[in-house]
Amino acid sequence: MSKDRNQDPILTMRNVSVNFPVKGGLPFLKKGIIQAVTDVSLKIKRGETFGIVGESGCGKTTLANAMIGMVKPTSGEVIFNGKNLYKIKRDDFKKTRRHMQMIFQDPFSSLNPRFNVYQIISEPMFIRGEDDEETMKERVVELLKLVGLSPNDLYRYPSDFSGGQRQRLGIARSIILNPEFLVCDEPVSALDVSVHAQILNLLTDIQKQMKLSYVFISHNLAVVKNVCDSMIVMYLGKIMESGNSETIFKNPLHPYTHALLAAVLDTTIRKDRKQVILKGDIPSPINPPKGCRFWQRCPYAMEGCKTIPPENIEVEKAHVVACHHVNGFPEIELPKDYKNKVNMEEDS
């Protein structure tokens, strides 16, 4: 691999939007369009861990699916290893996608309950035309050891395993083809907190060993913080804040990022604290608000936020924010104390 190639991004997305039609009760009548992802551009560097953060319904899973060729974007392009995923030929597409794999959130539905461990893990090899049982078995045993399971488990069924162990099986299956790019869709949120650390450490170890690039999806910023090199914060299909994760955690600028940070619970005892919370739920993506998508829940929304969508502005090196309060309206000035006041509204 030449040095140049190493510096190329492994995956680039340019103005990607994904819309889904919603069918109404009557046939042939379209009720509306879900704007799952709107105008997302990003670059993922080779070997880095890229975080996508947001609440459920913000389009992060759809975005990940668009990255690995499972959902065709309505517009925009996805370039993986220099190839436009949705414009290349079928054969080429298959060859390219071999390097992309996914780890699913729910370890219970992602393993076929009728298959034993060997069949589950070896399936990608089997699909790729490997038919030598011995080779496959060797590789599966090797992977079982790598993810911390015993080779004796080879002929057991998923129902014999705990959630954490099933997630290990899922990880083993996803790396059997030696991928370069691995999407982890909330890999720990269905598991016990005590198992989180085990799985996250395992993922980090594997990344080091296999020099993988990760996309790490989560709704918990505390998990993302120490895993990711760069990240984006998504809300209703749009990027709110993006950049180097260290920079973002040091200097979060978007009110939504603040809200997410405030919602993280840790082990500090604060029984009588007035908790800082974000009010309400994420609105439906069928008819997202005009202007800034976050204004309905934003404690700092102004008239202009309701109608004018904010632009992405690079506030410092590797730190892009889409918020009028940071960028300023053309005619309105930024409130001075905004940063202290952001989302500090107390719940009574």
């Binding site: 609440e55 709704h219 910023l221 919602a263 619970l265 908790q275 919370i277």
Partner: peptide, 8 residues
């Protein structure tokens, strides 16, 4: 639940 809703 999501972290934000969990807090609520």
């Amino acid at each position: 639940l999501d972290v934000t809703i969990q807090a609520q």
